[in-house]
C-alpha cells in the first residue's frame, strides 16, 4: 500500500516538475523548416519558380485577385516605372519583419520581378530557403516583359496558328496594359485561331484537418 501511494506521489511530482519546466522555458518560435542546400538545389534545377509573362499579363487583365506583383528593385526605380498593382519590396531589406506577412502567406501568388531575373531570383532564393511558399519569379524580368508584352515581334507567316494567337494576345495585353495601339495580325487561311488558355495554377499549402469525437 505504501509503495503504491509512493509511486503515485512520485508520478504526480514528475508531472508537476515537467509542467514547471515547460512553463518556465520560452516558447520555441524559430522556424525549423528551412530548406537544406540540397533541397534548394533541386528547386533551382527544376526551375518551377518561373512564371511566363503571358500568364502574368493574363492574370493582370482578368484582375485575378490571387496575383500579387512584387517589385524587388530600389524605390527610385519603382517610382519611375512599375507594373500595375505591384508593391515595392526592395531586395536590400527583404528580410525585414515588415514584409513577412506579405512574403510568408498561402493565399496569394506572389510574383517577384526586377529588371532582369538576377535580383528577383536572389530574393526568391532567400525567402524560399526560409520555407516561404507561393513565391514565383517573373521569367525574364521587366526587360523580357517589354520585349514580349509591350512590344511583341510579329511572327513570320509560316508559323503555326497558335503563334499568331499568342501574338494577338500579347498585342491585346500590351494595349490593355499601356502600350501603343496596333492593329491585330491577320493570318491567311485561318480566321479564328483559338486563344491560348493560360492555366493559372496556384499552389495551396495543405491544411491539416482532423478531429475526433
Amino acid at each position: 500500500m505504501f509503495s503504491k501511494l509512493n509511486f503515485r506521489v512520485i508520478l504526480s511530482a514528475l508531472l508537476i516538475l515537467l509542467g514547471l519546466i515547460i512553463a518556465a522555458v520560452p516558447e520555441n518560435t524559430t522556424k525549423p523548416y528551412k530548406l537544406t542546400s540540397g533541397q534548394m538545389l533541386e528547386e533551382i534545377k527544376s526551375g518551377t519558380q518561373f512564371v511566363q509573362p503571358d500568364q502574368v499579363a493574363d492574370m493582370l487583365i482578368n484582375k485575378d485577385p490571387y496575383l500579387q506583383l512584387i517589385d524587388v528593385r530600389s524605390p527610385e526605380e519603382f517610382d519611375q516605372f512599375h507594373l500595375p498593382g505591384a508593391i515595392n519590396v526592395p531586395l536590400d531589406n527583404i528580410l525585414s519583419d515588415q514584409w513577412t506577412d506579405i512574403l510568408d502567406q498561402d493565399v496569394k501568388m506572389n510574383v517577384l520581378y526586377s529588371n532582369g531575373t538576377t535580383h528577383s531570383n536572389e530574393a526568391w532564393m532567400l525567402i524560399r530557403q526560409l520555407g516561404y511558399g507561393n513565391n514565383y519569379v517573373l521569367e525574364g524580368g521587366l526587360n523580357y516583359w517589354v520585349e514580349t508584352i509591350m512590344n511583341p515581334a510579329s511572327p513570320v507567316s509560316t508559323n503555326p496558328g497558335d503563334e499568331f494567337a499568342r501574338y494577338d494576345f500579347r498585342k491585346g495585353a500590351g494595349m490593355a496594359l499601356g502600350a501603343g495601339a496596333v492593329a491585330p495580325s491577320q493570318q491567311e487561311g485561318t480566321s479564328s485561331a483559338p486563344k491560348p488558355t493560360i492555366a493559372t495554377k496556384i499552389k495551396k499549402k495543405k491544411v491539416a484537418s482532423g478531429g475526433c469525437s
Partner: peptide, 13 residues
C-alpha cells in the same frame, strides 16, 4: 503561454 497553461492543467489534474 501554452507552457503555463499546461502547468496549471497538470496542477488541476
Amino acid at each position: 503561454s501554452p507552457g503555463l497553461f499546461v502547468f496549471l492543467l497538470i496542477l488541476v489534474a
